[in-house]
Simulated assay, not measured.
Amino acid sequence: MANFWTSRTAVITGISITLLGAFYVYQSPTSISYTMSKSTSSDGIPGLEFKLNQDSRNPPSLLVTLKNNSPDTPYTLLKWGTPLDSAALNTGVFKIVDSDSGDEVQQFVLKINRKMPPEQEELVTLAPGTEEELSVVFNKPWMPEEKPAKYKVKAEGSFLGVWDKYGGDVTEDDKNAYNDSPFSGKKFTTNEVVMEVH
C-alpha cells in the first residue's frame, strides 16, 4: 500500500511540474511569432533600398538612388552619414577598392561639425513608391591619379535619423533629438559597383 501512494505521489508531482512548465512557457513574453519575426527581419529599414550605378567615367561619378518600396509608409531621413550626404566623400561612407590589386583606397576622413538642429535641406522625404537620386563625383585629392582604372565601390553605414512620416510632420524637437528617431542606428548597405575611371 505504501508503494502505491509513493508511485501515485510521484505521478502527481510529475504531472504538476509538466503543467507548471507548460504554463510558464505559454506565459513567457517570448512567443513563437516574436522569435520568428526576429529571425527573419533585417537590420535595415523595411522598404528603403540604396542602389549605386555609374553615370560618368570622366569625371568618375556614381548615381546614388534611394527608393521607398513600401506601399503605404512615407519616410523622412536625415542625409548625414548616408550616400545622399553632400559630405559623403569626406566621412568614409564609401568603401573604394582597386579592382585589380584589391587594395583599399585610403581616404582622408574628416570630422565635420554640424549645425543643430539640421536644416530642412538636410532632410529628404520619400513618399511610398518614390525615389531620390544624387550624383556623387569622385574627384577628391586622395583618389589615385592612375587612368584608366577600375574600382569596386559600395556604401555602408548607419542611419542617424529616420521618421516614418512626411517631412512637414517632422518637428524641430524631432530634428534636435534625431538620435531618438524610430529608426536611428539601423544599418544600410548598397550594392557593389565597378566604377571605371578614364
Rank of each mutant, 00 (worst) to 15 (best):
F188L: 12
S99G: 06
M195P: 11
G47M: 05
P74T: 09
R8A: 14
P46D: 03
S42H: 03
T82C: 04
E104S: 02
P118I: 13
D103V: 07
V194R: 12
N3D: 03
S135N: 07
T76D: 14
P141E: 07
L84T: 10
W142V: 14
N3P: 00
L126N: 09
L48W: 05
S39R: 10
L123A: 13
T6E: 00
S16L: 10
Q107P: 02
I12K: 01
N176E: 13
V170I: 15
R57M: 09
V124E: 06
S158A: 10
E196F: 08
T125F: 13
K67H: 03
I45K: 01
I96K: 07
S7L: 00
T76Q: 15
T82G: 00
L84I: 07
V97I: 12
G81A: 00
D174I: 13
A2S: 07
S70C: 02
A155K: 02
S28G: 01
F183C: 05
S61D: 01
N139E: 14
A127H: 08
T13D: 09
E172I: 11
L66A: 01
Q107C: 01
D98I: 12
V124R: 12
K95H: 15
L78G: 06
L63P: 01
K147M: 10
N191C: 11
E131V: 01
Q54F: 07
P60G: 10
I112K: 08
V25C: 00
Q106N: 11
